[in-house]
Every structure is written in structure tokens, then in C-alpha cells.
Design a protein around this nucleic acid. Structure first.
Length: 419
DNA sequence: TCTGGGGTCCTAGGGCGA
DNA sequence: TCTGTCGCCCTAGGACCC
């Protein structure tokens, strides 16, 4: 049996843990720059769609007294780690699928009443972290996802735990689930399927393998088999990332290359730090710039370039240098730039670098970077910077409504007033 | 004024050597 | 020497996830 554990309205629940006044009230969380809505509490869902631009919904927020928060990823990341930590005590095999979801595998649990075990897990997580979760059990990952949806949709009947453990339940679940809600069937495919008259997950499983493979590739075929109850998706071990991206929209349009250079340098430095954390070096960088595609009155420009490095590197200095070489090649004067990014690609393990005959990473950088990382760890993230970065940090992400970092920043720990 | 960010996997198609 | 075919590798683009 596999269980999918999913935190209910995770970001909103994290905010509620430290602010219980929010319980029962509509809450939304905004993306970086307070751009769009990226999470909603159940109470907010009828009024605000996912991804809604915040500025267009100002009236709605006021009208329904919706509480708004800027995203606070330091808090969510830390709360997630706490939840995952507890989950890992219930089964030796855990796959952390995302910030708020994990698969647990239960092998050799045939003498355990898994439904009761699920209730126990739920209670433990709720009590220890304050985060409510839902649990779906089934023989395959895709069916566990379906079971989880049922647990979430019918909390009173299921008590937040549902198990697909018979053919009858499997069929009933699939005949209930709209095809667009199936894990792995996104907007494009569901549109195609609906056109064909396929409305429920069950009908999807009745399509021929030929049709599914032809139209949805082997990914679709694997999904179909999973829904039929045949495991096709293994539990996955944690892997090192294959790409590392740092991209941002800017708070204002940039027209001058110097400003962009500073931002691209900072993005490259962040990528380098992430690379060093997973002990990898990259062999190429992709740099892109983008105008604001919402502003029709301005001429649009989107360009990216892959800069191949002459040697594998994870030095902030070298990555910043190469990223700027790329930027200079794609920058065109006269556009209003709204977004840029740096993506590190083609990794090799740090310990496994083949020396190049002509040019190699500067060996001094390794020591320098280790010192920088150590200092930044001790005195606070991004305190030590390259001179080419904006030392005064004149740019600032709009985060007008961010809650305190209760669990990761000593100066922001919750205070209790005894009166 | 104001519209996110960070990933993965798969396929098609082109270049290239055997 | 020329041409066709096959397989491998790479890349761009499209789909998906949270």
C-alpha cells in the first residue's frame, strides 16, 4: 500500500498556526512581488481563483474580508521539514514529493489496520505542528492521489483518511473523479479528452493503449495503468537537481544594461550557492531577459542564450562573469525589461572534475567560496556579496504583508504577553 | 502602478558518424 | 566515391507538477 499525505491548504495553514484568529476566515497567499494568488484557504476558494492577479481582486478582498499574506517561504519551508520529519517516523520508505506532499510506502503492514494508522498519523502531525493533513491509501501512486482527493472532499465522512482497497472502491472513485482532476492530466489534455467525450477518470482508463500512447506519450500510458491498479511509478530516492534556476520579475521596468547586469549577477551568485550546496558544478548557463508581456503598448522582446563554460564551475565569481557575457550578447537597448533569469545546467559532481588542458576554474575560488558560504551561514544569508552586486540593495521585492519568520529567525519569534 | 518561481520528463527533428 | 540508412546525441518545445 502507498499513502499520499497532503497538507491541507498548506501555506494558509502555516499562517494560521501562528495566528489562530485566522481560523474559519478566508486567507490568501500572494506570490513574489505580491503578484498573484498562489494559495487559498477553503473559505477563500469560492471568491478567488488560483493565480488571480492580486491588483484585480482588491475589491473582492475587501468585500469578503479576505486576509492577505505575502509569501513567507522561510516559514513554509521550515514547517514542511517538521511535518516530513514526523511522517518519516511512520514508515521507513518516504518520498517527499513537494513542499506539502509525501508518499509513504507500507510494506509488511498487512497486520496493521492502515485506516486507523492513518488517523494516528493525522493526529500526530496536527498535534505536533498544527498543520491539518489528508491521507489517501491505495495500491498505486496515482490511485493514492485519487483517494487523497476523496479524503479532502469528504472530511466528515472520511475523517480525512480514505482507502481504495477494493475493486469496487476503485471503480466508484474513478467514476466520480472528473478527468481534469486526475494527477498528470493538465489543461491541454483534459480539453482534448473532453472533446472526445471523456469526462470521468473511469472513461480515461477505458481508452485504448494505442490512443493514449499516441496522444499522451508513455507518460499518459503509465498513468492509465496506475489508475487500473498496476503500479507503474516507483517510489523515488532523493536526487540531486538537474537544473538550478533563479529568475525574478522586477518591481519596475529596467531599460539600462547596468541595472540588469547587477540583477543577473545576483541570480548567478544564487545559482552558484545552490550548486555548492549540492556539491555540483555546472557546465553551462542559460541567461534570459523578457519584456512585460502584459504591456501591449510596449514592443515585446524575449531572448535567451546558453553560455557554455570552458570548465565546470560553481564559483560565484566565475558564474557571474559568464552570465554577464551572455547578458551582453542578448541585451538590446530600447526595450523595457521586466524579468530576467539564470539557469545553471549540465552538472558534474564537484569531486569529479576533469581538468581542462587550457583553462580551468581558479583554484583559489574554492577556498574563497567556502569562506563566503561559512560567513553567510553564520551572520545571515547574502551578507557577503560580490562587489558587482547591488551592495545597498536598492531593489526590493514587494512583500507588504509578509508574516514574521516565526520559526527561523530569532528576532521574529512569536512573543507571548502575560498580563 | 500592480499578472510568480522552480522544477521534471518526453518527443520530434536535425546533425553526424558508421 | 557517392548515397542511403540506422542509431546516437543534442536541443527546443511542449506537456505536466507543486
Amino acid at each position: 500500500m502507498i499513502a499520499l499525505i497532503d497538507c491541507n491548504n498548506f501555506y494558509a495553514s502555516c499562517e494560521r498556526v501562528f495566528n489562530p484568529d485566522l481560523n474559519g476566515k478566508p486567507v490568501v497567499i500572494l506570490s513574489n512581488n505580491d503578484g498573484c494568488v498562489i494559495a487559498r484557504s477553503n473559505e477563500a476558494k469560492p471568491f478567488v481563483p488560483m493565480g488571480a492577479p492580486a491588483f484585480q481582486y482588491k475589491e473582492v478582498f475587501i468585500q469578503h474580508d479576505i486576509k492577505i499574506f505575502s509569501s513567507n517561504f522561510a516559514l513554509y519551508g521550515d514547517m514542511s521539514a517538521r511535518v516530513m520529519n514526523i511522517l518519516s517516523t511512520f514508515s521507513p520508505k518516504i518520498e517527499i514529493y513537494s513542499i506539502d506532499e509525501a508518499f509513504l510506502q507500507f510494506e509488511g503492514f498487512q497486520y496493521t489496520n492502515l485506516y486507523n494508522y492513518g488517523l494516528e498519523i493525522k493526529q500526530k502531525v496536527q498535534k505536533s505542528t498544527g498543520i491539518p493533513i489528508s491521507i489517501g491509501f491505495a495500491e498505486t501512486k496515482a490511485l493514492a492521489k485519487v483517494a487523497n482527493k476523496i479524503a479532502k472532499k469528504f472530511p466528515t465522512e472520511t475523517k480525512g483518511v480514505y482507502m481504495i482497497d477494493s475493486e469496487e472502491k476503485r471503480l466508484k472513485a474513478l467514476k466520480w473523479l472528473p478527468v481534469e482532476d486526475v494527477w498528470g492530466i493538465g489543461r491541454k489534455f483534459s480539453k482534448k479528452l473532453l472533446k472526445l467525450g471523456v469526462q470521468r477518470a473511469f472513461q480515461f482508463t477505458q481508452l485504448s493503449d494505442y490512443w493514449v500512447k499516441k496522444n499522451m506519450s508513455v507518460v499518459g500510458l503509465r498513468l492509465k495503468r496506475e489508475l487500473l491498479g498496476e503500479p507503474n511509478l516507483e517510489m523515488e530516492e532523493p536526487r540531486k537537481k538537474q537544473n538550478i534556476a533563479t529568475t525574478r520579475s522586477f518591481e519596475k521596468d529596467y531599460t539600462n544594461i547596468e541595472e540588469l547586469k547587477e540583477r543577473v549577477t545576483t541570480f548567478a551568485v544564487t545559482c552558484a550557492e545552490k550548486l555548492r550546496k549540492q556539491k555540483s558544478c555546472c557546465n553551462a548557463l542559460l541567461v534570459f531577459v523578457h519584456t512585460n508581456f502584459h504591456k501591449n503598448q510596449h514592443q515585446q522582446y524575449f531572448k535567451n542564450i546558453v553560455v557554455k563554460l570552458p570548465f565546470p564551475s560553481n564559483s560565484s565569481i566565475e558564474l557571474a562573469r559568464f552570465a554577464n557575457v551572455g547578458l551582453e550578447k542578448i541585451f538590446v537597448q530600447g526595450f523595457h525589461y521586466k524579468k530576467a533569469g539564470v539557469i545553471a545546467m549540465n552538472f558534474t559532481p564537484e569531486a569529479n572534475i576533469q581538468l581542462n588542458f587550457f583553462e580551468n576554474s581558479n583554484p583559489k575560488h574554492k577556498l574563497l567560496m567556502a569562506a563566503m558560504d561559512k560567513l553567510n551561514n553564520e551572520i545571515g544569508q547574502h551578507k557577503i556579496k560580490l562587489a558587482s552586486q547591488d551592495l545597498d540593495r536598492t531593489w526590493k521585492m514587494r512583500q507588504e504583508k509578509r508574516s514574521p519568520r516565526y520559526t527561523t529567525k530569532l528576532s521574529e519569534v512569536i512573543t507571548v504577553n502575560a498580563t
